[in-house]
Amino acid sequence: MSSKLIIHATNVHQGGGRTLLDALLGQAPGGPVTALLDSRMALAQGVAQGIDIVRVKPTPMARLSAERWLAANTGSDDVVLCFGNLPPLFKLRGWVRVFLQNRYLIDKTPLANFSLKSRVRISIERRWLSGCVGHVDEFIVQTPTMKRLLDEKTHGQPPAHVLPFVTDKQHYSRGIGAGATARTACQGRFVYVSSGEPHKNHRTLMKAWCLLADEGLFPSLQVTLDATRFADLCGEIDVMRARHGLHVRNLGHVPHSEIRALYADADALIFPSTLESFGLPLIEARQAGLPVLASELDYVRDVLDPEAAFDPYSPYSIARAVKRFCGNQEPSLPLLDASEFMNYIVKKGRLSCES
């Protein structure tokens, strides 16, 4: 019997994972291929042609049944790609590769800001990964930072390899150029393409926009938040927008096919996320020749050199980066020499002083 490829992706149906899985299914190799997919994972017409699709409902019992199916139907010559971060629940006879792109599973980042449901899910998945790491022959990650974190957790066994892939690798470089036209004029139009999980850091970003408004600066910002999934966050943004007169617009969920048009209409991507396994919008913005203002963190430097970097935990740092990019420089400190300082000290009474 000939070997086959089994793509196990029962917990992928949205975000960057969905985008990459779509691209992968469109590149099926010769030979038999079976894909176990979440029932919510919609496929474009023509994608996954020639692939045997097995739909799995997003319930614990259906997921368990899929794991049992995988154990029963994997032959010794087969290759299994687990595309949903987690190893097989049971030891398989074939060669098992796990594509790991959820940094929360290997990072020690606290989960306090997540909902109870999300905390429970991530905690279970962390235990699943740790308990079933022996079922993996090889991990695949997207960046050197993810490899370092994973190696620290697994002590390098099984080995992890850095194999970053995107839907289209054309026009990518660490800096603006390489086939893309750099934009130099800034009209204060920013875009942030992301979902609304806590690590995406929208609240700190909005505080930065409020600080800018307090200085009489009103750059525009477009975000892509699903108003149903992130209702509380969208409500907070609405309050800030009304209170400070912010030029912030939520576009809602934007299909990946329309993202490039957002980049074409912006002066820069701003990306204040505090934690990423890859950061696909960073790659896509660079391919579009769009300047990037991003967190000064390892995951950013893994993939590009931003035009401006900031401390993602400080709204003041974010606001200053935006001002610099738009040509609004911070005033210099009103330095004194020792003589001027002493003259102030010896004077009696309260004097006005620039702060």
Rank of each mutant, 00 (worst) to 15 (best):
M61K: 14
S118H: 05
G349M: 15
I318Q: 02
D77C: 09
L150D: 02
A213Y: 05
H256N: 08
R121A: 13
N11C: 07
P219K: 00
S339G: 08
L81R: 06
I237T: 03
E138S: 06
R97P: 00
A23P: 13
T224G: 00
T184Y: 10
L262G: 07
E307Y: 01
Y316S: 06
V96H: 13
A185G: 04
A208I: 02
H171R: 05
H8Q: 08
P144I: 05
S65C: 15
L70E: 07
V300H: 01
L351Q: 13
A227Q: 10
P306Y: 01
T34C: 12
T204M: 05
A72G: 11
T181G: 13
P306S: 01
V141D: 04
E67S: 03
S317G: 04
A182F: 15
A264L: 09
D298K: 05
R183M: 06
S314T: 02
V12I: 10
L36A: 14
N85E: 02
D77Y: 05
L81W: 13
T228M: 11
R40D: 01
D302K: 02
R127G: 07
G196Y: 02
L89Q: 14
G131I: 12
S295K: 02
Y344R: 07
S123N: 14
G16K: 03
G134M: 14
E258V: 08
Y192P: 02
I6Q: 08
G349Q: 10
S3G: 11
V12H: 03
S355C: 05
F99D: 00
H171A: 13
C186I: 12
Y299D: 01
P58I: 04
L81A: 07
S194M: 01
D38E: 02
G188C: 06
T154R: 07
Y192W: 03
K147L: 10
E215L: 13
T19K: 10
L282S: 11
G245H: 12
V322L: 11
S39F: 09
G75P: 04
G245E: 13
T181H: 13
G289L: 14
R183T: 11
E236C: 05
L275Y: 02
D311C: 00
I51W: 10
Q222S: 10
R121H: 15
D77S: 08
H253V: 02
P144M: 04
R260G: 01
Y104K: 11
V166W: 05
P29A: 09
F165N: 12
Q222M: 09
P110C: 10
R127D: 08
R301P: 15
D265Q: 10
G84V: 03
L351M: 09
G196V: 00
R229M: 12
H199I: 01
W69E: 15
G235S: 09
G50E: 11
P272Q: 00
L212Y: 01
G252V: 01
T74I: 01
F114C: 08
D214F: 14
F190G: 03
A319P: 11
R243G: 06
W95K: 14
A35L: 03
D337M: 01
H155L: 08
V33L: 06
L225Q: 05
V300S: 02
D226H: 00
R121W: 14
V136Q: 03
N11K: 05
H244K: 09
N73W: 07
F230W: 08
C210F: 12
G26V: 06
D305C: 11
I259V: 14
Q287K: 06
D337H: 02
